[in-house]
Design a protein around this nucleic acid. Structure first.
Length: 555
RNA sequence: GUGCCUGUAGCUCAGCUGGACAGAGCAACGGCCUUCUAAGCCGUGGGUCGGGGGUUCGAAUCCUCCCAGGCACGCCA
């Protein structure tokens, strides 16, 4: 448990017993005592609204209740000041000593600083990207990729047992279409006069795959292509494209714990789960097809799982897949989807419930679409013509770090305007560099320290109470707040919070850097500041690691 | 037509499990480099929180209606 958590818990306990002790207070039902960090720093480090909440049942004005609570508080060595404010808030000002301990805590926990126990080891899976292996990853996938990756990292840090998974849709009609598309391009390359069907994949990459086959084997597969035997083309394209996807994700700093092939569900697992649902009378026959009674669980209407021709729908595989997830022991499953799939949410929730699990065991995060801009103007993309900007292109243009930051800095609910020119700029307008620059500056100080042969004393020998200016205290508070930020971010499944916090921490450091020269004459002050700088470096490194962004030593 | 997301400063967005005068970055304007990286810091101006009604001691936040934009509504995946 982090230092700050301990203090919060202690304070909550003290408030609770104060309320219980106060004889004049008649409280029947004591709600949990919430501590919040006031927006305005003149309102203390923490505030509680408990007096206002109790006003009703205690039949007393909030301010009077607050006063009573304060009078009955004991054992508050870590509190410097308490006041009643506004309509009945109680504001607490922590004494500054505890803040210095944070520096010690960071040093001790190092890479583990920020690690919490919110998740209590709960097994949780985050499934993201899961793009069909029928083409390269593009910008839409990229956002989901970073959101999923960072969210998983945050949950891991918050104490969940997290697994990152990619679901490969390698079993549907689209795979045959992929094979056919490549086969036809192959024929065209060999001067056969054939037309590409309307629904075929028409991206340049299809022709490139066909070209590879021509280069390797000439017209060896021409007869098969003509006869519509697509297996070789399909499997060749599939493997190549999947390899490309893996390579792209790898370049983006994303590693999955598991790659799950849809094919492994066909057809045993699908039949199994269909039989189970049938036994539960949740699947019925109509118009020659089998329908899942999703409307019974809040969906608009029932959905086909086995088509008239006997083949399973995408949903059928998804039912089997999610059954499998829970069977593997995941208590909670998070799916990160593009917003264009939101129509699918209700039926998947229904699936989970039908299988006998809590609806909450499936959480779906929808990431809104990305608009790529260049100098403020939209980059044209036409999916139809296969003309889209790939993940690879973007990384190549702006770099991994900037791309990751931009994709994760906004709430997933918010449309994202991604300006390529801005992401590339090495200037004040670019938040990525701002954060990395803080780290580089720290490294620069440390380099100076080394050059001058200054020894960094062990913590016991250092008087941290030398740190007294506003900039120093503020920086200390940001550092102390980090574990709480992780917990909040994990709880609300909101990765963008950590991107913002990184910026805020960097800002606190830059202010400190400008106001407090580190290598000063006063040796004690210098050493205390050096310790603060080291602690800041540690937290920045942890944060950047979490975001999957590098921490350069110089810029 | 139905459902989901969005509408907050000139621009891009936080805040939205209700709290104390609404925040950040950029843009605009004005300052700061003889010492650790000015990719930085300090300051100023700027908002009927899309609109109406309601709940509450208290609403950007909850409910409701309306307006605007995006997306989705297949025996496709």
């Amino acid at each position: 448990m982090s230092l700050i958590r301990k203090l919060q818990t202690r304070l909550q306990g003290e408030i609770k017993s104060a309320i219980e002790t106060a004889e004049q207070l008649e409280v029947i039902d004591l709600p949990p005592i919430k501590l919040e960090t006031p927006r305005n720093e003149n309102h203390g480090d923490y505030a509680t609204n408990i007096a206002m909440i109790l006003a009703g049942q205690a039949k007393m004005p909030p301010r009077e209740i607050a006063q009573l609570i304060i009078e009955n508080l004991t054992d508050l060595d870590f509190i410097a000041k308490i006041e009643v404010a506004g309509p009945g808030f109680i504001n607490f000002y922590f004494s500054i000593d505890w803040l210095y301990d944070v520096v010690v805590e960071i040093e001790e926990q190092a890479d583990d600083y920020g690690q919490g126990d919110l998740g209590a080891g709960k097994k949780i899976q985050v499934e993201f990207v899961s793009a069909n292996p029928t083409g390269p990853l593009h910008v839409g996938h990229s956002r989901g990729a970073v959101v999923g990756d960072v969210l998983a990292n945050i949950l891991q840090t918050a104490g969940f047992d997290v697994s990152k998974e990619y679901y490969i849709n390698d079993a549907g009609n689209q795979m045959d279409l992929l094979g056919r598309s490549v086969a036809i391009r192959y024929q065209q390359l060999l001067e056969e006069d054939v037309e590409l069907p309307e629904d075929a994949y028409r991206g340049e990459y299809i022709t490139e795959l066909a070209q590879e086959i021509v280069e390797q084997d000439g017209d060896k597969y021409l007869a098969e292509a003509k006869a519509g035997q697509l297996e070789y083309f399909r499997e060749y394209a599939y493997q190549e494209l999947l390899d490309q996807i893996k390579a792209d994700l790898n370049n983006f700093g994303i590693k999955f714990d598991n790659w799950f092939s849809e094919r492994t569900l066909h057809s045993d697992k699908i039949e199994e789960v269909a039989a189970k649902l049938k036994a539960d009378q949740l699947i019925y026959e109509q118009d020659g097809a089998l329908w899942f009674k999703s409307s019974k669980f809040g969906d608009d209407k029932d959905r086909v799982v086995i088509k008239e021709d006997g083949s399973p729908t995408y949903l059928a595989a998804d039912i089997a897949y999610h059954q499998n997830k829970y069977q593997r022991g995941f208590e909670e499953v998070i799916n990160v989807w593009g917003a264009d799939h939101h129509g699918y949410v209700a039926r998947m929730k229904a699936v989970v419930e039908a299988l006998g699990y809590q609806r909450e065991a499936l959480q779906i995060i929808l990431v809104q679409l990305v608009t790529l801009l260049r100098d403020g103007k939209q980059v044209p993309m036409s999916k139809r013509a296969g003309d889209f900007v790939t993940m690879r292109d973007v990384i190549k243009e702006v770099g991994k770090d900037a791309a990751r930051y931009f994709y994760v800095m906004r709430s997933p609910d918010s449309h994202l305007d991604f300006d390529l020119e801005l992401a590339k700029q090495e200037s004040t307008e670019n938040p990525v560099y701002y954060i990395q620059y803080a780290h580089a500056r720290i490294c620069s100080i440390l380099e100076q320290v080394e050059e001058e042969g200054i020894e960094i004393d062990s913590l016991e020998e250092i008087d941290l109470s030398k740190l007294t200016t506003e900039a120093e205290i503020n920086l200390l508070k940001e550092l102390a707040d980090y574990p709480d930020q992780i917990a909040k971010s994990a709880e609300s499944r909101a990765p963008h919070h950590m991107a913002r916090f990184a910026h805020q921490l960097a800002s606190a450091f830059h202010t400190f850097y400008n106001k407090c020269y580190v290598l000063v004459e006063d040796r004690d002050l210098m050493k205390a500041r050096l310790r603060l700088v080291l602690a800041t470096k540690q937290v920045l490194v942890n944060l950047l690691e979490l975001l999957g962004i590098s921490a350069p030593e110089n810029m």
